[in-house]
């Protein structure tokens, strides 16, 4: 059965509704890779609450989904792994290393929100831009590139106008 994928703002929520065969899991992986690009999603939640078995194949697929989506610019969080399933996974030596996990959907959203807040703070740091009403403007990719370019140009100017530490230029003297 195909897993429905809902779009919720910047996030996608894949809510597993029934047990999944290996083929269903592969389909989910491909669907998510496609949607993340189409909707420019920043985060993906995969809700596996109904799964009664997460074996080596399922673990490997979930892990590769998360790593693949990360390369596409989205964070993945797996939510709802049942205690018995977690127990069996640990006995099998299976881990979801490098993949976000959370107890349930609510915590999964919090996890992603936490990540994106940190991202926005990081981006806003050092930005002096404000809109006409004086509110700070969230830098877009364009302004980020602009800042980076300007910073680079200023460094070069300093270098050639002698503001940079002369020692760094006086090799061997």
């Amino acid at each position: 059965m195909r897993v429905p994928i809902l779009k919720q703002g910047d996030y996608l929520i894949a809510s597993v509704q029934s047990v999944l065969s290996d083929d269903d899991l592969r389909l989910l992986r491909d669907d998510l890779a496609d949607r993340v690009g189409r909707f420019r999603s920043r985060g993906v939640i995969i809700d596996v609450t109904v799964l009664d078995v997460i074996d080596s194949f399922a673990t490997r697929t979930l892990r590769s989904v998360a790593h693949m989506l990360k390369l596409r610019g989205a964070h993945t969080v797996i939510v709802g792994i049942q205690p018995d399933v977690a127990f069996a996974m640990v006995q099998l030596g299976l881990t979801l290393a490098g993949v976000g996990t959370a107890l349930d959907l609510e915590e999964g959203l919090e996890y992603l929100n936490g990540r994106s807040h940190r991202l926005h703070e990081h981006r806003a740091f050092g930005s002096r831009e404000e809109d006409r009403l004086g509110h700070p403007v969230r830098p877009t990719r364009h302004t980020q590139e602009h800042h980076a370019l300007r910073a680079h140009e200023e460094d070069e100017k300093k270098l050639f106008s002698g503001h940079a530490s002369p020692r760094s230029l006086d090799y061997g003297h």
């Binding site: 009664d52 078995v53 074996d55 205690p83 018995d84 399933v85 127990f87 069996a88 006995q91």
Partner: peptide, 12 residues
């Protein structure tokens, strides 16, 4: 958890 463990082993 035995039920899940058995089902998982069968799956493998």
């Amino acid at each position: 958890s035995d039920l899940t463990v058995i089902a998982t082993a069968i799956s493998e």
